[in-house]
């Protein structure tokens, strides 16, 4: 069951779920005004912890590109791609090297933080507007809070459905 094809199919399913979450999130009311949860990142975290290394980065890239095909590739798409890729790479690295020493929630918080930090950095560099530093604390904090939410939801989902998602249930 551990064939590349099997893993690819599962990654694709999580990607599609991510795309859907990405598209339905904006109209939903935010739990805290002004904070974007980035629900779609839930799928990257779940993928990473159920399907293993490389799945988070896969899901993130495929999802961002697909969503941008729907919404049109503009600066915002570029930002979300950059933020998503950097945060996925960091989560992948932590998972790869320190899988046993770290938990889902902390890794997800780190991912959220790096997601927003990267986006902010890209805006500052690309648009050359250094005064945007005023938004940094708020952006980082909201990234961490979103990470807490994604992490706990992800951990809960993984505990209940982790085996189902990875296909390990079928093997036993």
């Amino acid at each position: 069951m551990d064939s590349p094809t099997n893993k690819m199919v599962r990654i694709c399913i999580l990607t599609v779920l991510g795309v859907v979450l990405n598209l339905i999130e904006p109209p939903l009311p935010a739990p805290v005004p002004g904070i974007k949860l980035g629900l779609a990142n839930l799928m990257s975290v779940i993928g990473l912890y159920s399907l293993g290394t490389y799945s988070a980065i896969w899901i993130t890239i495929l999802r961002t590109i697909t969503v941008n095909l729907f919404l049109g590739f503009d600066l915002r798409g570029f930002l979300s791609l950059g933020g998503g890729v950097v945060s996925a790479l960091i989560m992948e690295a932590v998972y790869y090297f320190y899988k046993r020493e770290t938990g889902v929630v902390a890794v997800s918080m780190l991912g959220g933080l790096m997601h927003n930090f990267t986006q902010w950095l890209m805006v500052v560099i690309l648009l050359q507007q250094p005064y945007l530093v005023v938004y940094l604390p708020f952006l980082l904090l909201s990234g961490v809070l979103a990470g807490v939410f994604i992490g706990t939801t992800g951990a809960y989902t993984l505990r209940r459905l982790g085996g189902f998602i990875s296909g390990k249930d079928l093997q036993s």
Binding site: V94, Y98, R100, E101, T102, G103, A106, V107, M109, L110
Partner: peptide, 8 residues
């Protein structure tokens, strides 16, 4: 909480 979490 795991040990590595603290560092994060």
């Amino acid at each position: 909480m795991k040990r590595g979490d603290l560092l994060i």
